[in-house]
Design a protein around this nucleic acid. Structure first.
Lengths: 305, 305
DNA sequence: GGAATTTTCCATAATATATGAACAGTATTT
DNA sequence: AAATACTGTTCATATATTATGGAAAATTCC
């Protein structure tokens, strides 16, 4: 006997003031209503309704049970509605916050594909990871590189990004190839400006220890692609993520400046507020990202697997 | 398919991290758990669990549904518990607030009977309707005469109390019998002190209008029985409820002072805070009162019926 | 007191359930 | 690397239970 149906039947009887009305409202036979209520009463071991053949009045026990049953039914309704809401077609405008370079190089093409698959969703892609931006309340979803997001957020690891030291062949021929981290002090280091950070790189040496290399280049910018162009132009060594430079490396415009250096990896996360986790557009985009990275994992993640 | 059982099965699977554990915890077969969850999923039209044959992980939809389902189950548990609690044997100390005279004359013998029938309950009978007492938080139940209790309280009408003008035959022979309300001004009126009230009676005349009679007696007391004794002693006319004087009237010690006056009736209510309505001792005592008054209605209520 | 509604009861047909074993797949362990 | 142990699902069947429509019982309204 479905206990929820029993409660529905009982509540309907109280609402309609009779079994007949309840049966009509529920679309079942009077007998069924009677049996449901009887079963409920025997299960509880208490009389819930005072039947007077002409009128049905709830017992005082029935009265308090009615309130409880209604709240149970409401909760059940909300549970169903939550699931239905999460399965609805994604709609609205998805606000995505992402690091500038990653957003421009990697995310933008993916977003384009996502938009094609999800005609109901618009995307606002906010690039640049300022804290002021990160706390904007209308951000649905943010992508971060390196640090694992705040544990108050729901996060999924998407990928492992490798950053590498690159320079143009001409530069390396002219200035020599560094073989140890200390050798970098003799080179022109093209630094990427980050808000609030000292001009320095943190590199993990072959022995596994982190070494901080102060950069003393004549050019610094916050644009990774600008930095890449400078490196291609032979202006020095840059420390850039693979997604920015792999194409230039493949074309021979850039080379690994220090092949002996172990892979400098950082995890890539997508994160969202827990309350946004049930928004279809957020769910669908996160799933889209996860699917995309599973189909086409990066070099470093493939190596791990 | 019992929807609550489905939720229980699903929640158990999430808790135990597997169908086998859930089946053991619920005491049913693995097949049943599997079917319950399958049925739930198909009813919702959503996958709730990611099965990996070795481990079961809730989908993100499943995660939010788990919370909802848990609250549904909790509410259902509370609903059952509320009914069970209301059916438990009455225990504890019942705090009753009642008007002094009514409590002494009528309620005390009834309480004695109630105590015999309910060995688990003690009674504290607080007599005297001071507002300070009425708001005491440990009062389970209060009885009031005349005014209908605050609508924030649950109240039941118990009876209709008739108040009557009485005096001793000797007094009436000596001073004459009043025939009109105005005549009362020529009499000694024995007033019952009430906190905050002017010394006056409000009488309903034969024409139905309320007349206020200022009392100017030399004796006033807050004790109804003391007033009755004074009236028996021939000291004047008293205005007292039937339960106080009917015996003396029957014995001829008192007479109706003004037989032409219509019945001066006031309803008698029992009231309790809604939150106390589910306490077995409150319920049982209220029921006891109602039963007692149904079996033995007062004269005026019998006349109405 | 009669009549009309209302609930409950009853027998039947249909539906649905729980079960245990067999099946298929994966993670652990040796 | 292979075998094992354990997992969830599926299947057929026997058991329970359900809903239904009509008849019966009961009580209130007129």
């Amino acid at each position: 006997m479905d206990r929820l149906s029993e409660m529905e039947a009982f509540a309907a009887v109280v609402d309609q003031g009779g079994f007949t009305g309840a049966a009509q409202k529920l679309g079942i036979s009077k007998s069924a209503v009677s049996k449901h209520v009887s079963s409920l009463e025997s299960r509880l071991g208490a009389r819930l309704l005072n039947r007077t053949t002409r009128r049905v009045n709830p017992t005082d026990i029935g009265l308090v049970y009615y309130d409880r049953a209604r709240s149970v039914l409401n909760a059940a309704l909300q549970a169903d509605a939550a699931v239905q809401g999460m399965q609805a077609e994604p709609t609205g405008t998805l606000q995505i916050l992402a690091p500038s370079d990653y957003g421009a190089c990697v995310l933008a093409p993916m977003v384009a594909r996502y938009l094609e698959e999800n005609p109901g969703v618009d995307v606002n892609l906010v690039l640049g990871h300022d804290l002021a931006e990160a706390t904007r309340s209308d951000i649905d979803l943010s992508i971060s590189l390196g640090a694992k997001p705040d544990s108050s957020l729901r996060s999924h690891k998407l990928d492992t990004v490798t950053r590498m030291l690159v320079a143009s062949p001409a530069y390396l021929d002219r200035r020599g190839r560094p073989s140890r981290i200390e050798d970098l002090a003799q080179h022109v280091l093209l630094h990427q400006l980050e808000s609030g950070n000292d001009p320095a790189w943190t590199l993990v040496s072959a022995s596994g220890e982190a070494r901080v290399v102060r950069t003393r280049g004549r050019l610094a910018t916050n644009s990774g692609s600008c930095l890449k162009d400078s490196a291609i132009a032979g202006m020095g060594i840059a420390f850039l993520p693979d997604f920015l430079v792999s194409e230039a490396v493949a074309r021979g415009q850039l080379q690994h400046a220090m092949p002996g250096l172990p892979a400098q990896t950082a995890p890539l996360f997508v994160a969202h507020a827990p309350s946004n986790g049930s928004l279809p557009r957020v769910r669908s985009f996160v799933q889209f990202l996860l699917d995309s990275y599973v189909e086409e994992p990066s070099v470093s993640d493939r190596a791990i697997a």
